[in-house]
Write a protein that binds this DNA or RNA. Structure first.
Length: 580
RNA sequence: GCCUUCUUAGUUAAAUGGAUAUAACAAAUCCCUCCUAAGGAUUAGUUGUAGGUUCGAUUCCUACAGAGGGCACCA
């Protein structure tokens, strides 16, 4: 409908004095015909006259009056009116207006989908938490966000792949391994525990599980605590090297066991959170520096060969001049070990080589300073940093009984994602994570998420869905064999539905906008508005005591509302409720 | 100091450069003999300051004031 109107408008614009093809193009690009915010302004609205008037130095109101006359004379629309500073408001014939209902009945769960993504290959990397402990509520926000934009992009015609990058190669994993071993033999060490080791209860349970099938016995336990420096960082490093030296076999067994155990718990939590990944990428698969054929060596060598990396003070540095980063960055330390950054450079090269059109990275806001150097590395390796889209996700504060829930990784006291799911359920958790723009601070109120007031938007929306569902059921019981149909609506029988139909017709645009801006919260706010329109209608109209014709047309229309709510929730990874 | 996000009603939050800035909570008043009251209706209230671009600015630009985050040969 909008398309044909735009064609008519273009014909009108082209017929103006002193116009040329370029101007027509500029005007059509800058202006838009949209579904009116409010039914008072007709069904559709265009701002083309204001755009054209400013470019052509004409009076916008006069231009709007002319376009009004022009469109009216076509006889295609019920009403055309120039309004305000130069808007054109169009009211469609009832049949055209109700077209969206046909569309929903035909497309069902696919209503709202589009192909604006043009089949672009998009990879989304998110969460990528270190496998050194369970996922906590901070990771949950990235999980909900990454998964939701994945679903939204997929629904709007992109070809999406979701990936989790497992940092299974660095020092953190050594600390994890040491933590588990020391916990196992803690009694033999006179209850000693390193200051910077991981302290959560999960460390102990991994250790216990390991000892069920393995024997951990050191010939010379005392040597493990030999030569310990007082600095916490140096202390843990010394313990790591002592443990490795004392019994390399046990070290490797515990290391792989701990990793597997934690990765499994992460996967279990994500399954419960309804987040699924297409691939899991191990940092360790990038290989080692001393292996010339490994990906990490190849990336660094290529950077050196191309003059983008150089040696200085015994270390290898990446030149980041072209990226706006404030200093050059170390890839290989002067002691010959690669930095975390070096792995990430190789990882991003790997991603670029896989041929995606867009790489979306969902990172915690604390990685903000990291963006420029990664962009620099992508450019330096001969690709374009434009491919990389980094979305930062801000921290979430949890509030319980009005108080902020304190969390400290150091002491192992934190609210895990699993705790959150158990407390309020995966769907409500996802909903509240997504209810605010990802790059802004979120105060997550656990009590609100469980409350039964209207303030709890999650239930407000679900309630609308459940109400319609039960209404449909009752309608079918009352009228066996009677189908809902479009005829009644087209015959202009039940005008009170108009507002709902108008709201539904906005949905595909909301999805597109949400995909373009990567903002799932737009869908949440839309659903709230739609639910509100429905609840209001429901209160004013006692559906099941209407005449059969009316009932038919109303239930038909409400089914479309329910389908739309259901589709919107699905895009957020939330299951619509059939009863409450 | 540098980089970055942000500042909207008493509070928490919306708004591809468009019409009278949108909701909820809190306040006041109403609506269950009724399809789920986890609901509905009515009233009152908002764009940090100073400039600029524009037919039009909450939105874009500049400065200022205030808040958060980031600035490792850590990951």
């Amino acid at each position: 409908m909008i398309k044909t109107i735009n064609q008519k408008i273009e014909i009108f614009i082209s017929s103006l004095d002193e116009i040329n093809d370029d101007l027509v193009k500029t005007i059509t690009n800058k202006s838009s015909t949209t579904i009116s915010e409010n039914l008072k302004n007709g069904h559709l609205t265009t701002n083309v006259c204001m755009v054209a008037a400013s470019l052509l130095k004409l009076d916008s109101k006069e231009l709007a009056n002319n376009l009004e006359k022009n469109l009216s004379e076509l006889g295609l629309y019920k009403d055309v009116k120039a309004a305000g500073p130069g808007f054109i408001n169009i009211t469609l014939h009832r049949k055209d207006f109700a077209l969206v209902l046909h569309q929903i009945i035909e497309e069902k769960q696919n209503f709202g989908e589009s192909n604006i993504g043009d089949n672009r290959k998009v990879q989304i990397e998110f969460i990528s938490a270190n496998p050194t402990g369970p996922l906590h509520v901070g990771h949950g926000r990235g999980a909900a966000y990454g998964d939701a934009i994945g679903r939204i992009l997929q629904a709007t015609g992109s070809s999406v792949e979701k990936e989790y990058y497992i940092n299974d190669a660095g020092r953190q994993i050594d600390i994890l391994t040491a933590s588990v071993i020391v916990k196992i033999i803690q009694k033999e060490l006179d209850n000693f525990f390193p200051q910077n080791a991981y302290k959560g209860a999960y460390i102990e349970s991994i250790g216990k599980e390991f000892t069920l099938k393995n024997i951990v016995k050191y010939n010379d336990v005392g040597s493990i605590l030999k030569d310990l420096p007082s600095d916490p960082e140096e202390e843990i490093d010394q313990i790591i090297s002592n443990l490795k030296r004392s019994d390399e076999k046990i070290w490797h067994l515990v290391k792989s066991f701990s990793l597997e155990s934690i990765i499994k718990s992460i996967k279990d939590d994500l399954r419960d959170f309804n987040v699924d990944f297409d691939s899991w990428f191990n940092e360790s698969s990038l290989g080692k520096l001393n292996d010339n054929s490994s990906e990490i060596s190849k990336s660094i060598n290529k950077l050196k060969d191309d003059g983008m990396a150089y040696e200085k003070d015994g270390a290898v540095w990446l030149n980041t001049d072209n990226s706006g980063d404030d200093k050059h960055r170390v890839l290989v330390r002067d002691d010959g070990r690669a930095t975390y950054f070096a792995s990430d450079v190789a990882y991003h090269k790997n991603k670029v080589d896989r041929g995606y059109d867009d790489l979306i990275n969902v990172w915690g806001a604390d990685h903000h300073g990291y963006i420029k150097r990664i962009e620099a590395s992508i450019d330096a390796l001969g690709s374009s940093k434009e491919k990389l889209i980094v979305k930062l996700v801000q921290f979430a504060n949890l509030f319980k009984e009005g108080k902020k829930v304190k969390m400290s990784t150091r002491t192992g006291e934190f609210f895990t994602l699993k705790d959150l799911i158990e407390e309020i359920g995966a769907d409500a958790a996802r909903f509240y994570y997504l209810s605010k723009q990802a790059d802004q601070h979120l105060d997550f109120d656990l009590d609100l998420a469980k409350s039964d007031s209207k303030e709890n938007i999650f239930y407000y929306i679900q309630y609308a869905h459940a109400r319609i569902f039960s209404l449909e059921k009752k309608f079918k019981e009352m009228n066996p064999g009677l189908d809902t149909n479009i005829e009644a609506i087209e015959k202009n029988i039940y005008k009170e539905c108009d507002n709902l139909i108008h709201e539904i017709s906005k949905y595909p645009n909301v999805v597109n906008k949400s995909a373009i801006t990567l903002q799932p919260h737009l869908i949440i706010f839309y659903l709230r508005d739609l639910a509100q329109s429905f609840h209001s209608f429901y209160n004013d109209n006692h559906v099941l005591s209407e005449s059969k014709d009316n009932m038919q047309s109303i239930v038909f229309c409400l089914s479309a509302v329910r389908q739309t709510i259901s589709n919107g929730l699905e895009l957020l990874g939330i299951k619509p409720m059939k009863k409450m």
